[in-house]
């Protein structure tokens, strides 16, 4: 089922004294429920502009964004209802949680603001959310963010995003600040939750390796334009566009590095 449509979206920012820059240039894609689309590209390629448009921090210069076939409302109750459908997971779990508040508070707030459950059931719902992200409620519920590891904090951020029962999750580099060894755990968790809840996920990253493993489809953005798109394996393993090839060549790839039996200065580096 089609969840989200970007239809020829263009975003132009005016630049003082220099005319304007085109942050997004005629971008179109369709995201279905239960599907993950990876948006890859280097800094400044327009990935985050897409997230900003979705969260209504920016409005497109031209083109249209539709959720369930309806254009994103601009104001009022309709906009609030739209926002309830969409949640973000940010890059830095150290900055995105409030150091003054307990984990319980972080999860209670969205429940209360979005009237997810009656007040009497709030505590049970908080515990259920923590269990869903594989955290032990008894251990973490009364702790503050600084008492948790980076991976645990990111799980709390995910639980908070899920609290309002969204249908669309925008994950902007959700694992790039985490140790390589726990990235997979967090991505696997996101994949599980997505399957269980039929979430549509936009995965924004510049890491091609996790994009390949985590996404169904990948869009490669360069200077606001989609230069390549297709099933994840096709795009990463057999890139057609020179820019995708360049990204691929720059990404660490021990399999290829040692297969070519090159020393440090030969081959890839």
């Amino acid at each position: 089922m089609t969840l989200l449509e970007f239809d020829a979206v263009t975003k132009v920012y005016p630049v003082r004294g220099a005319g304007h820059i085109t942050a997004l240039d005629d971008v179109s894609f369709t995201l279905r429920s239960g599907q993950t689309i990876g948006l890859v590209g280097q800094s400044g390629s327009g990935k985050s502009t897409i997230a900003k448009i979705l969260t209504q921090l920016e409005t497109p210069t031209s083109g249209e964004v539709r959720l369930d076939g309806t254009p994103i409302p601009r104001r009022g109750a309709a906009l609030r209802a739209y926002r309830g459908q969409l949640r973000m997971v940010f890059q830095d779990p150290f900055a995105s949680l409030n150091p003054y508040h307990s984990i319980r508070y972080h999860l209670q707030r969205p429940l209360r603001l979005d009237h997810v459950v009656p007040k009497s059931e709030e505590d049970d719902e908080v515990r259920r959310l923590l269990e869903r992200v594989r955290l032990d409620p008894e251990v973490v519920i009364d702790r503050r963010p600084h008492e948790l590891s980076g991976g645990q904090r990111q799980r709390v951020a995910i639980a908070r995003a899920l609290a309002s029962r969204p249908r669309l999750l925008v994950a902007d580099e959700p694992v790039s600040m985490l140790d390589v060894s726990i990235r997979l755990g967090v991505l696997n968790l996101l994949a599980d939750l997505q399957r269980e809840e039929g979430l549509g996920v936009l995965y924004i990253t510049h890491d091609l390796a996790t994009a390949r493993h985590f996404s169904d489809e990948i869009l490669v953005l360069n200077q606001g334009r989609v230069v390549e798109r297709g099933p994840a394996d096709d795009v990463i393993l057999d890139p057609q566009h020179p820019y995708t090839q360049e990204l691929r060549a720059a990404s660490p790839d021990p399999d290829a590095h040692f297969a070519s039996a090159s020393g440090i200065d030969g081959g890839a580096l």
């Binding site: 390589v180 060894s181 990235r183 997979l184 991505l187 696997n188 994949a191 599980d192 091609l208 390796a209 996790t210 390949r212 493993h213 985590f214 169904d216 394996d233 990463i236 393993l237 691929r248 990404s251 660490p252 790839d253 021990p254 399999d255 290829a256 040692f258």
Partner: peptide, 29 residues
Amino acid sequence: IWTDPQDDYTKTLLSSFPRLTGEKGMVLR
């Protein structure tokens, strides 16, 4: 280290990152 890791922990670390072009299957999709 890559082709013939000896320690179990090294093996765990090596198997815990997503590979750009190698075998898939670490993320259970």
